[in-house]
Simulated assay, not measured.
Amino acid sequence: MSVVLVEQPTPDVAVVRLNRPDARNALNQEVRSALAEHFDRLGQAAEVRCIVLTGGERCFAAGADIRAMADAGAIEIMLRQTQRLWQAIAACPKPVIAAVNGYAWGGGCELAMHADIIIAGEGASFCQPEVKVGIMPGAGGTQRLTRAVGKFQAMKMVLTGLPVSAREALAMGLASEVVADDAVQARALELARHIATLPPLAIAQIKEVLLAGQDASLDTALMLERKAFQLLFASADQKEGMRAFLEKRPPVFRGG
């Protein structure tokens, strides 16, 4: 059976599900390759407007597969080029919602941080424990984490290797929302379906500008925002959205 499953509960929403329950969804090269393949395809699929990324109701992903790394040398690790596989998720133009139950540790925490929204269950926990096995995060655990929660919270997580609870993650900015464990999957799908009803060109521009602006000066980021704002006035969806507002009716966005 595939290590990553893709379901489409509706044509415009896709669910990407890690499927290694016996290994707590540990991330080996097979899983990373499958994720990259699916995100490449879904990112280009015109009908898909939002993606939910999950490990299921028990465990998101407990980290990298240590058995596949323990005896590897530096050159072997370098030649695996895993950053290219992660990039397929980071570069996905569609909004990605991580539905996190249980462990999001190590590579699992880094995987969740590739999403745009994180819905966590009350029993979820987030951790970067790499220092405990003699290494450090290698897929964004020092960089994305710092951008999400700030220097001091990130330093505490990566230097101690200690987990934080879902509520702590929410307070520090590492989660968007915390719900009951048995409501995580449904809430993520609810948000995905809502986003799927919105104009996809505007959604794509919002995601692109927000992410690009994080690493730009304020003046440059504001320029990117302004240009994207102006560009959307060339879309049919902008005309439909504003006419629907004035006519007091629901809009129908077609992505043009």
Results as ranks from 00 to 15, higher is better:
M1A: 13
V6T: 11
Q8C: 09
T10F: 07
T10V: 15
D12W: 05
A14Y: 07
A14H: 03
V16W: 05
L18N: 02
N19W: 10
D22P: 06
D22G: 06
R24T: 08
Q29R: 14
Q29V: 14
R32Y: 08
H38F: 05
F39Q: 03
G43W: 01
G43P: 04
A46M: 04
A46D: 14
I51T: 05
E57L: 13
F60H: 03
F60L: 04
A64F: 11
A72E: 12
I75N: 11
I75A: 13
L79Y: 12
Q81N: 15
L85D: 09
W86P: 00
K94L: 12
P95E: 08
A104H: 01
W105G: 11
W105C: 14
G108Q: 04
C109Q: 07
C109A: 14
A115E: 04
I118C: 03
I119N: 01
E122R: 10
F126Y: 12
R144Q: 13
L145N: 06
L145E: 06
L145C: 02
R147Q: 14
G150R: 07
K151T: 15
A166T: 03
A171D: 10
M172K: 10
G173E: 03
S176H: 11
E177R: 15
E177C: 14
V179P: 04
V179L: 08
A180D: 13
A183P: 01
A183S: 13
Q185L: 10
L191K: 05
I203C: 11
I206W: 11
L210W: 13
S217N: 03
A228N: 10
L231K: 15
A236L: 09
G241F: 06
F245A: 15
E247F: 05
E247H: 10
K248I: 13
P251C: 02
P251Q: 01
